[in-house]
Amino acid sequence: MIVEAFPAALSSPTNKGDVGSEASPDNRIRTTTMSGIVLRQRPLGERDRIVTLYTRERGKLAAVAKGARQPRSKLAAMSQPLTHGRYTVARGKSLGVLTQGTLEDPFFRLKQDLLRMAFATCAVELLDKTVPEEDAAADIFNLLLASLYEFQIDPVPELVLRSFELELLHLLGYLPTLKRCSRCNSPLADLHRHAGSYLFSPQFGGIVCRDCQRHTRCSVTVTAQTIEIMVALRSGDPMAVRRLTITPRNMQEMRRALSEFIQYRLDVNLKSTQFLDRLRWMRSHPVPPVE
């Protein structure tokens, strides 16, 4: 049931979330309970946190979690990044206040595995930096939630991140062109029979055919097989991906192509990828106990 305490809000075309009213002296506090995922948090003052949530009902929003840094606070666990729960937010004049929450999934196993957590953090940062405030998109919420489960269990978390990037780009209306030339629109037929490589151009928005290659300035070389993997990732069929052999070279090409595309098209520089690179480097260069 939906109850509005704000008379002005009655005229709003959509009522999102369970909206209730809370007794308050000026009768202006309105609370909403939403399904949300914590994207990030930062400390506020001595005891509080500001959490950025991505909610199914209202999209991205920030709220103050009062007392959340005190160990006994019920909001302490709720305000941790990569946590899914039901969040009740009271909306004041400025920033909302997180009044209560119930945990749905703390993604405990994800947080016990540094590499998986690093991949999930890249996804969360990309989302945080590309979606506008308070712009509800249930598709994006569902994508994030499903991806967090995948990051937790998938044998290749890097592919989960690539798949997340492609799907998010699609939902934001920036999907790279993979089956046609992004400049002249001619179809790139029979990719799998083609042994050669193509150029992936962030500038034109995807793959470019041989004739158009000379027009692109900055681009990433990708093999036909890498394009095929990206197409399979987009198909939504996990078996289509599992059937393919994916080499480290394919992984690297996808990583480069998508990261340059995201930088160029969305003007986003991710900080989390530095840590991911560092972690990878560390695992290939263990510290010797004696110098």
Binding site: Q80, P81, L82, K111, D113, L114, M117, M282, V287, P289
Partner: peptide, 20 residues
């Protein structure tokens, strides 16, 4: 006992693994 604190502990534990 936060996500950042745990990440820090996991990272250091991994670095120290080769040491006795």
């Amino acid at each position: 006992p936060t996500v950042e604190g745990d990440a820090t502990a996991l990272y250091i534990a991994e670095l120290l693994r080769p040491f006795p």
